[in-house]
Design a protein around this nucleic acid. Structure first.
Lengths: 100, 100
DNA sequence: ACATCAATTCGATGGTTGTCGAAATGTTAA
DNA sequence: TTAACATTTCGACAACCATCGAATTGATGT
């Protein structure tokens, strides 16, 4: 049977997108919040915790999604976001093998 | 005996500095190069591999050092850089516990 | 003292990015 | 069809940042 330790290969572009996505403190906070819960309605719920305009939040969510760190699912007029932990794990593995 | 799994606590500022330091592809490349070797004279040796001006390289080295990812040691007119892998490990551990 | 070389600092520039208000889009309920 | 609400897009602005040439500092050897 296959071991579960193998992780996804990231392209250079993905690597850069993820690193940049994590570099903004606000995005980091958002991602942290999403990661603790299993789902989340972003603007309505997120804006209770983090002081941010709808436009800015939307911008950051797009960055996180483009980086592959979250996935979105529309539900009526809301959008739910889900953490993509396998992508984060691939990033951690890459850092470890490149830099550790 | 103590387990070796305990890692350093990073402040929010350090966390942000490290994330930003890693977010630039060129710095990532530089750090990767340093991490493979055990020491390195930066400008003279680094500039053989990476096409970069002395001024820009100096700037990036300062960023990496401020983030704590490398340490520098003067040796005559050269400067040797050493990877600080325990800082990187602390960063990885932090990402894992915050986001995984 | 002088020339040479490694590295840093300074100053300027162009590009990127975080921010938000306002307008637009899309959805649900009255 | 309105009205109300969630989210996105647009446009603009300010702050940040990577980049490099030129000048500077600092060390070595002649």
């Amino acid at each position: 049977m296959a071991t579960a330790t193998q992780s996804i290969e990231l392209t250079e572009d993905q690597l850069a997108l993820i690193a940049r996505a994590l570099a903004d403190p606000r995005r980091y906070e958002i991602l942290k919040t999403i990661s603790t819960k299993r789902s989340c309605t972003p603007c309505s719920k997120m804006r209770d915790c983090i002081d941010i305009s709808p436009a800015t939040l939307s911008h950051h969510m797009k960055e996180l999604e483009t980086a592959g760190l979250v996935r979105s699912e529309k539900e009526g007029k809301f959008v739910n976001y889900f953490p993509q932990t396998h992508i984060l794990r691939a990033y951690l593995d890459r850092l470890k093998s490149d830099l550790a």
